[in-house]
Protein backbone atom coordinates (compact mmCIF):
# COMPACT_ATOMS: atom_id res chain seq x y z
CA UNK A 1 0.00 0.00 0.00
CA UNK A 2 1.12 3.49 -0.71
CA UNK A 3 1.16 5.10 2.67
CA UNK A 4 2.98 8.31 1.98
CA UNK A 5 0.49 9.67 -0.52
CA UNK A 6 -3.24 9.96 -0.75
CA UNK A 7 -5.09 7.06 -2.37
CA UNK A 8 -6.96 8.23 -5.43
CA UNK A 9 -8.40 5.01 -6.75
CA UNK A 10 -9.52 2.34 -4.31
CA UNK A 11 -11.59 -0.70 -5.14
CA UNK A 12 -12.88 -3.10 -2.58
CA UNK A 13 -13.70 -6.64 -3.60
CA UNK A 14 -14.51 -5.54 -7.12
CA UNK A 15 -16.22 -8.40 -8.94
CA UNK A 16 -17.86 -8.71 -12.32
CA UNK A 17 -19.67 -11.77 -13.63
CA UNK A 18 -20.51 -11.94 -17.31
CA UNK A 19 -22.63 -14.78 -18.58
CA UNK A 20 -21.89 -17.03 -15.61
CA UNK A 21 -18.15 -16.47 -15.81
CA UNK A 22 -16.34 -14.43 -13.19
CA UNK A 23 -14.26 -12.04 -15.25
CA UNK A 24 -13.05 -9.91 -12.37
CA UNK A 25 -12.86 -11.47 -8.96
CA UNK A 26 -12.45 -9.57 -5.70
CA UNK A 27 -9.96 -7.02 -6.96
CA UNK A 28 -8.63 -4.47 -4.46
CA UNK A 29 -6.79 -1.77 -6.33
CA UNK A 30 -4.99 1.04 -4.55
CA UNK A 31 -3.52 3.82 -6.60
CA UNK A 32 -1.90 6.82 -4.95
CA UNK A 33 -1.77 10.38 -6.20
CA UNK A 34 1.06 10.89 -8.67
CA UNK A 35 1.57 7.19 -9.29
CA UNK A 36 2.11 5.79 -12.72
CA UNK A 37 0.31 2.56 -12.07
CA UNK A 38 1.05 -0.28 -14.47
CA UNK A 39 -1.94 -2.59 -14.63
CA UNK A 40 -0.65 -5.82 -16.07
CA UNK A 41 -2.10 -9.10 -17.11
CA UNK A 42 -2.37 -11.42 -20.06
CA UNK A 43 -5.12 -10.86 -22.62
CA UNK A 44 -8.48 -11.76 -21.19
CA UNK A 45 -7.34 -11.43 -17.58
CA UNK A 46 -9.94 -8.79 -16.76
CA UNK A 47 -7.99 -5.57 -17.25
CA UNK A 48 -10.40 -3.89 -19.60
CA UNK A 49 -13.44 -5.03 -17.64
CA UNK A 50 -11.91 -3.56 -14.48
CA UNK A 51 -11.18 -0.30 -16.24
CA UNK A 52 -14.70 -0.17 -17.68
CA UNK A 53 -16.05 -0.46 -14.15
CA UNK A 54 -13.70 2.28 -12.94
CA UNK A 55 -15.11 4.58 -15.60
CA UNK A 56 -18.71 3.68 -14.85
CA UNK A 57 -19.16 2.05 -18.25
CA UNK A 58 -20.01 -1.26 -16.64
CA UNK A 59 -21.61 -2.01 -13.30
CA UNK A 60 -19.77 -4.19 -10.81
CA UNK A 61 -21.63 -7.36 -9.84
CA UNK A 62 -20.34 -6.71 -6.34
CA UNK A 63 -17.73 -4.61 -4.60
CA UNK A 64 -17.13 -0.89 -4.38
CA UNK A 65 -15.17 1.69 -6.28
CA UNK A 66 -14.00 4.93 -4.75
CA UNK A 67 -12.19 7.48 -6.87
CA UNK A 68 -11.11 10.80 -5.34
CA UNK A 69 -12.81 9.41 -2.24
CA UNK A 70 -16.18 9.41 -3.97
CA UNK A 71 -18.42 6.46 -4.75
CA UNK A 72 -18.66 5.93 -8.50
CA UNK A 73 -22.27 4.86 -8.21
CA UNK A 74 -23.35 8.02 -6.48
CA UNK A 75 -21.03 10.65 -7.90
CA UNK A 76 -20.12 9.36 -11.34
CA UNK A 77 -20.21 12.76 -13.01
CA UNK A 78 -18.14 14.49 -10.34
CA UNK A 79 -15.51 11.77 -10.70
CA UNK A 80 -15.49 11.68 -14.49
CA UNK A 81 -15.00 15.43 -14.60
CA UNK A 82 -11.50 14.83 -13.25
CA UNK A 83 -10.76 11.70 -15.30
CA UNK A 84 -9.50 11.38 -18.84
CA UNK A 85 -9.63 8.00 -20.49
CA UNK A 86 -8.68 5.97 -23.49
CA UNK A 87 -10.31 2.54 -23.50
CA UNK A 88 -8.88 -0.13 -25.80
CA UNK A 89 -8.64 0.70 -29.51
CA UNK A 90 -9.11 4.37 -30.25
CA UNK A 91 -12.55 5.91 -30.65
CA UNK A 92 -12.80 8.66 -33.20
CA UNK A 93 -15.05 10.12 -35.84
CA UNK A 94 -13.24 9.27 -39.07
CA UNK A 95 -14.94 11.84 -41.28
CA UNK A 96 -13.93 14.70 -38.99
CA UNK A 97 -10.44 16.13 -38.68
CA UNK A 98 -8.43 16.08 -35.46
CA UNK A 99 -9.57 19.51 -34.33
CA UNK A 100 -13.23 18.69 -34.94
CA UNK A 101 -12.88 15.41 -33.09
CA UNK A 102 -11.52 17.26 -30.09
CA UNK A 103 -14.15 19.98 -30.45
CA UNK A 104 -16.94 17.38 -30.29
CA UNK A 105 -15.61 16.26 -26.92
CA UNK A 106 -14.76 19.77 -25.78
CA UNK A 107 -18.37 20.86 -26.21
CA UNK A 108 -19.42 18.15 -23.79
CA UNK A 109 -16.68 18.98 -21.30
CA UNK A 110 -17.12 22.71 -21.53
CA UNK A 111 -13.34 23.15 -21.61
CA UNK A 112 -11.89 26.36 -23.07
CA UNK A 113 -11.35 26.35 -26.84
CA UNK A 114 -7.64 27.10 -26.46
CA UNK A 115 -7.22 23.72 -24.79
CA UNK A 116 -7.59 21.98 -28.17
CA UNK A 117 -4.38 23.51 -29.51
CA UNK A 118 -2.63 22.76 -26.25
CA UNK A 119 -3.43 19.04 -26.30
CA UNK A 120 -2.64 18.79 -30.00
CA UNK A 121 0.77 20.25 -29.22
CA UNK A 122 1.31 17.81 -26.34
CA UNK A 123 0.74 14.81 -28.61
CA UNK A 124 2.52 16.56 -31.51
CA UNK A 125 -0.40 16.49 -33.92
CA UNK A 126 -0.54 20.22 -34.56
CA UNK A 127 0.66 19.73 -38.14
CA UNK A 128 -2.03 17.15 -38.86
CA UNK A 129 -4.89 18.94 -37.15
CA UNK A 130 -6.81 19.65 -40.36
CA UNK A 131 -6.66 16.18 -41.88
CA UNK A 132 -9.57 13.74 -41.65
CA UNK A 133 -8.77 11.25 -38.94
CA UNK A 134 -9.65 8.22 -41.05
CA UNK A 135 -6.38 8.83 -42.92
CA UNK A 136 -4.33 8.74 -39.72
CA UNK A 137 -1.96 5.91 -38.87
CA UNK A 138 -2.85 3.84 -35.82
CA UNK A 139 -0.15 5.61 -33.82
CA UNK A 140 -1.60 9.00 -34.70
CA UNK A 141 -5.11 7.85 -33.85
CA UNK A 142 -3.82 6.62 -30.52
CA UNK A 143 -2.13 9.97 -29.91
CA UNK A 144 -5.36 11.74 -30.77
CA UNK A 145 -7.04 9.45 -28.23
CA UNK A 146 -4.56 10.57 -25.60
CA UNK A 147 -5.13 14.20 -26.60
CA UNK A 148 -8.87 13.63 -26.12
CA UNK A 149 -8.20 12.14 -22.70
CA UNK A 150 -6.13 15.17 -21.74
CA UNK A 151 -8.69 17.68 -22.96
CA UNK A 152 -10.42 18.15 -19.62
CA UNK A 153 -7.15 18.65 -17.68
CA UNK A 154 -7.69 15.39 -15.79
CA UNK A 155 -6.19 14.54 -12.43
CA UNK A 156 -6.43 10.87 -13.29
CA UNK A 157 -5.60 9.52 -16.70
CA UNK A 158 -6.80 6.01 -17.52
CA UNK A 159 -5.11 4.46 -20.54
CA UNK A 160 -6.14 0.96 -21.52
CA UNK A 161 -3.56 -0.74 -23.73
CA UNK A 162 -2.47 2.53 -25.35
CA UNK A 163 0.33 0.87 -27.33
CA UNK A 164 -1.65 -2.13 -28.53
CA UNK A 165 -1.04 -2.80 -32.19
CA UNK A 166 1.63 -0.12 -32.60
CA UNK A 167 5.02 -0.66 -34.20
CA UNK A 168 8.17 -0.27 -32.06
CA UNK A 169 8.60 3.36 -33.05
CA UNK A 170 4.96 4.08 -32.16
CA UNK A 171 5.32 2.28 -28.84
CA UNK A 172 8.45 4.27 -28.05
CA UNK A 173 6.69 7.51 -28.90
CA UNK A 174 3.63 6.79 -26.76
CA UNK A 175 5.87 5.71 -23.91
CA UNK A 176 7.90 8.90 -24.02
CA UNK A 177 4.68 10.88 -24.17
CA UNK A 178 3.23 9.12 -21.14
CA UNK A 179 6.46 9.41 -19.16
CA UNK A 180 6.55 13.13 -19.76
CA UNK A 181 2.97 13.70 -18.57
CA UNK A 182 3.04 13.46 -14.79
CA UNK A 183 6.09 15.66 -14.63
CA UNK A 184 4.44 18.39 -16.64
CA UNK A 185 0.96 18.28 -15.19
CA UNK A 186 1.05 16.27 -12.00
CA UNK A 187 -1.50 13.69 -13.08
CA UNK A 188 -1.93 10.17 -11.80
CA UNK A 189 -1.85 7.58 -14.55
CA UNK A 190 -3.36 4.14 -14.71
CA UNK A 191 -1.99 2.32 -17.71
CA UNK A 192 -2.84 -1.22 -18.61
CA UNK A 193 -0.81 -3.55 -20.76
CA UNK A 194 -0.20 -7.20 -21.41
CA UNK A 195 3.50 -6.49 -21.79
CA UNK A 196 5.52 -5.99 -18.65
CA UNK A 197 8.48 -4.66 -20.60
CA UNK A 198 6.32 -1.84 -21.84
CA UNK A 199 5.20 -0.72 -18.42
CA UNK A 200 8.30 -1.43 -16.38
CA UNK A 201 10.15 1.54 -17.83
CA UNK A 202 7.57 4.05 -16.73
CA UNK A 203 5.50 2.59 -13.90
CA UNK A 204 6.13 3.43 -10.28
CA UNK A 205 3.64 0.85 -9.05
CA UNK A 206 2.46 -2.35 -10.58
CA UNK A 207 -0.67 -4.43 -10.23
CA UNK A 208 -0.79 -7.82 -11.90
CA UNK A 209 -4.10 -9.44 -12.68
CA UNK A 210 -4.57 -12.99 -13.91
CA UNK A 211 -7.83 -14.84 -14.42
CA UNK A 212 -9.68 -11.95 -12.85
CA UNK A 213 -7.69 -11.90 -9.64
CA UNK A 214 -5.14 -9.34 -8.56
CA UNK A 215 -2.11 -11.48 -7.75
CA UNK A 216 0.44 -8.75 -7.14
CA UNK A 217 0.33 -5.12 -6.21
CA UNK A 218 3.33 -3.17 -5.06
CA UNK A 219 6.08 -0.78 -6.09
CA UNK A 220 8.06 -1.65 -9.17
CA UNK A 221 11.24 -1.94 -7.02
CA UNK A 222 9.78 -4.86 -5.10
CA UNK A 223 9.16 -6.64 -8.36
CA UNK A 224 12.71 -5.91 -9.44
CA UNK A 225 14.07 -7.33 -6.17
CA UNK A 226 12.31 -10.55 -6.95
CA UNK A 227 14.04 -10.56 -10.26
CA UNK A 228 17.49 -10.41 -8.73
CA UNK A 229 20.12 -12.55 -10.20
CA UNK A 230 21.72 -15.81 -9.27
CA UNK A 231 25.28 -16.94 -9.88
CA UNK A 232 25.59 -19.68 -12.42
CA UNK A 233 28.57 -22.03 -12.26
CA UNK A 234 29.84 -23.88 -15.30
CA UNK A 235 31.84 -26.84 -14.01
CA UNK A 236 32.77 -30.35 -15.02
CA UNK A 237 30.36 -32.87 -13.47
CA UNK A 238 27.92 -30.33 -12.05
CA UNK A 239 25.82 -32.87 -10.17
CA UNK A 240 28.77 -34.01 -8.06
CA UNK A 241 29.79 -30.40 -7.60
CA UNK A 242 26.28 -29.59 -6.36
CA UNK A 243 26.47 -32.34 -3.74
CA UNK A 244 29.87 -31.17 -2.67
CA UNK A 245 28.68 -27.59 -2.27
CA UNK A 246 25.63 -28.67 -0.33
CA UNK A 247 27.77 -30.71 2.01
CA UNK A 248 29.72 -27.54 2.79
CA UNK A 249 26.53 -25.65 3.44
CA UNK A 250 26.43 -23.45 0.33
CA UNK A 251 22.99 -22.58 -1.06
CA UNK A 252 23.51 -24.38 -4.36
CA UNK A 253 20.77 -25.54 -6.65
CA UNK A 254 20.86 -28.08 -9.45
CA UNK A 255 17.99 -28.37 -11.88
CA UNK A 256 19.62 -30.99 -14.14
CA UNK A 257 20.74 -28.39 -16.64
CA UNK A 258 22.58 -25.80 -14.62
CA UNK A 259 24.17 -25.33 -11.27
CA UNK A 260 23.30 -22.06 -9.58
CA UNK A 261 23.90 -20.30 -6.31
CA UNK A 262 21.46 -17.74 -4.95
CA UNK A 263 22.50 -14.22 -4.02
CA UNK A 264 25.86 -14.48 -2.39
CA UNK A 265 28.58 -11.99 -1.53
CA UNK A 266 32.01 -12.02 -3.13
CA UNK A 267 33.64 -13.96 -0.28
CA UNK A 268 31.14 -16.78 -0.55
CA UNK A 269 31.67 -17.03 -4.27
CA UNK A 270 35.43 -17.06 -3.80
CA UNK A 271 35.01 -19.79 -1.21
CA UNK A 272 32.86 -21.84 -3.54
CA UNK A 273 35.34 -21.56 -6.39
CA UNK A 274 38.35 -22.48 -4.31
CA UNK A 275 36.45 -25.41 -2.79
CA UNK A 276 35.58 -26.66 -6.31
CA UNK A 277 39.14 -26.25 -7.56
CA UNK A 278 40.55 -28.02 -4.52
CA UNK A 279 38.19 -30.93 -5.20
CA UNK A 280 39.51 -31.19 -8.78
CA UNK A 281 36.44 -29.81 -10.54
CA UNK A 282 37.20 -27.78 -13.57
CA UNK A 283 35.54 -24.36 -13.38
CA UNK A 284 34.65 -23.03 -16.80
CA UNK A 285 32.42 -20.13 -15.97
CA UNK A 286 31.17 -18.11 -13.05
CA UNK A 287 28.50 -15.76 -14.30
CA UNK A 288 25.65 -13.71 -13.01
CA UNK A 289 22.26 -14.63 -14.36
CA UNK A 290 19.41 -12.14 -14.30
CA UNK A 291 15.94 -13.49 -14.07
CA UNK A 292 13.96 -11.20 -16.33
CA UNK A 293 10.87 -9.50 -15.01
CA UNK A 294 9.16 -11.13 -17.90
CA UNK A 295 9.83 -14.60 -16.58
CA UNK A 296 8.59 -13.59 -13.13
CA UNK A 297 5.50 -12.18 -14.73
CA UNK A 298 5.02 -15.42 -16.62
CA UNK A 299 5.47 -17.41 -13.44
CA UNK A 300 2.89 -15.31 -11.65
CA UNK A 301 0.30 -15.30 -14.37
CA UNK A 302 0.62 -19.00 -15.09
CA UNK A 303 2.11 -20.86 -17.98
CA UNK A 304 -0.92 -20.70 -20.21
CA UNK A 305 -0.71 -16.94 -20.26
CA UNK A 306 -0.44 -15.57 -23.76
CA UNK A 307 2.22 -12.92 -23.94
Amino acid sequence: MTTKSEIIVATDGLTKRLGGRTVVNGVNLAIGRGDIYGFLGPNGAGKTTTIRMLLGLARPTSGHIRIFDKDIRKERLAILRKVGSLVEYPSYYGHLNATENLEAVRRLLGAPKSRIDEVLAIVRLTQEARRPVKGFSLGMKQRLGIATALLGNPELLVLDEPTNGLDPAGIQEIRELIKSLPRTSGVTILISSHLLSEVEQMATRVGIIAKGELIYQDGIERLREQAQGRIRLGVSDPEAAWQLLLSYGYPAEWDRTKLTVGQADDRTIAGIVSRLVQSDFQVYRVEEEHASLESIFLQMTGSEASL
Binding site: R52, L55, G56, L57, L77, A78, L80, R81, V83, S85, V87, E88, Y89, S91, Y92, Y93, G94, V105, L108, L109, T148, G152
Partner: peptide, 18 residues
Protein backbone atom coordinates in the same frame (compact mmCIF):
# COMPACT_ATOMS: atom_id res chain seq x y z
CA UNK B 1 -24.13 4.75 -36.49
CA UNK B 2 -21.60 7.54 -36.03
CA UNK B 3 -20.89 6.12 -32.58
CA UNK B 4 -21.16 2.46 -33.51
CA UNK B 5 -18.83 2.67 -36.49
CA UNK B 6 -15.84 3.84 -34.55
CA UNK B 7 -16.77 2.37 -31.18
CA UNK B 8 -17.17 5.81 -29.79
CA UNK B 9 -19.83 4.95 -27.20
CA UNK B 10 -17.23 4.08 -24.59
CA UNK B 11 -15.52 7.40 -25.18
CA UNK B 12 -18.71 9.47 -25.09
CA UNK B 13 -20.06 7.71 -22.01
CA UNK B 14 -16.80 7.97 -20.07
CA UNK B 15 -17.18 11.74 -20.29
CA UNK B 16 -18.85 13.64 -17.48
CA UNK B 17 -22.29 13.55 -19.07
CA UNK B 18 -25.42 11.83 -17.85
Amino acid sequence: GIEHQMNAWKMTLALPVK
